[in-house]
Amino acid sequence: MASIKDVARAAGVSIGTVSNVLNRPEIVSPSRRSAVETAIAELGYVRNDAARQLKAGRSLTVGCIVLDISNPFYAQLAAGAELAAEASGIGVLTGNSGHRTSRERLQLSLFEEQRVRGILLASRGGTEELVRAIHDRGTPIILMETDEHVESFCSVSTDDAAGGRMAVAHLLEQGRRRIAVIAAKLELRQVAARIAGASAAVAEVPGASLEIIEADDLTVLAGRAAGSRIASRPAGKRPDGVFCINDLMAAGAMQAFAFQDRIRMPEDIALIGYDDIAFSRSTIVPLSSVSQAAEMMGRTAYALLEEEVVHGGGHVHRHVTFRPELVVRRSTDPDAADPLDAEGA
């Protein structure tokens, strides 16, 4: 591979001139800049960013670690960070921990070794000591989806307790009293908060009950399996309102209700999800959901990272909380407008 020395020799200029063309082209005369650019093209020279990082002490890349990149919510979160970083000429490398602490640890260590500008982290948990050590060694870390550790880290999150309460309060307002929550990974902060909010909503309505149906995972297939368990019950033993911890599980439960036992939504069971991912509008019955500002959370996390990079030791950590919003569709309200009709109009 061609080196910067090879480019300088081919262009008949100094190494310093080549460096200026790469980093400050406006200070180089047009003729010399043209000679260097021609040499770069002919030799196929690619800048050695690792060497530049060692000299500058900071990369032009940011690491972003999410729990499950196959979940559209996390894809939107990472996309928001990428869009914000792009405006500053910064790249975002996204890692998928897959809800595995060991993989999260590996990705954290690799990003630190690569001298990234900073790390945006949606954590599975269990890596707190490593996160603090990396941060203390000089790599800024912004926590996503948590409001913990606000004195030590900047962070962004959604008020998930309010979101869970909002979802179940809507079911109760629709006259539902036998409420079930389909959930998995109950130890996750987000899941626990949504269940706590759901419980609080039920506690305020006399005669209402809450059942937790634990699934194997936070996926469509796991939601379908949980939905099948509900559908297999006698009609009088089924819940009349179901809150799924995310939209993927809700889509699976909807499949089980619609195809296994022809359970009508919302007439027999009102169904609501969480996240309001894009395909919620186009499920078999348009899915009511609780919307999170995923892209804005990613943008805000990146903005907090840049604040910390710029201000360094003088930076004051802060937390940004986003309020979720209820989106009502036909899976809970038969009179709700069809979103596809609205798009056609």
Rank of each mutant, 00 (worst) to 15 (best):
D217A: 15
E211L: 09
R176I: 08
F259H: 09
R238Y: 07
P239W: 02
A258G: 04
G223L: 03
A208N: 11
V220G: 02
D276S: 05
Q174W: 08
I213C: 13
A258D: 00
E211G: 02
F259R: 09
G298R: 08
R264G: 01
V202P: 14
P234H: 03
G273W: 02
E204F: 11
E187F: 10
L218Q: 07
L248A: 02
A192L: 12
R189Y: 15
D268S: 01
P266N: 05
F243W: 03
R178Y: 09
D240A: 04
C244G: 00
A250S: 04
L186I: 15
D247I: 00
R224P: 02
Y302W: 05
P206N: 13
G175H: 03
Q190V: 14
Q255Y: 08
Y302K: 03
D268E: 02
L218T: 14
A235L: 05
Y274V: 05
E267K: 04
A226I: 09
F279K: 02
V242S: 06
L287T: 10
D268Q: 04
Y274D: 01
A208V: 10
I213H: 12
V181W: 06
P234M: 11
S280L: 10
A235E: 14
A208T: 13
A301M: 12
A200W: 10
V220T: 14
I179H: 06
I269D: 00
V220P: 05
E211T: 15
Y302C: 08
D247T: 01
M265C: 11
E187G: 15
A203R: 13
G252Y: 06
L287N: 04
E211A: 13
A184P: 13
S291I: 11
K237Q: 15
A203C: 13
I195A: 10
R177N: 14
G223K: 03
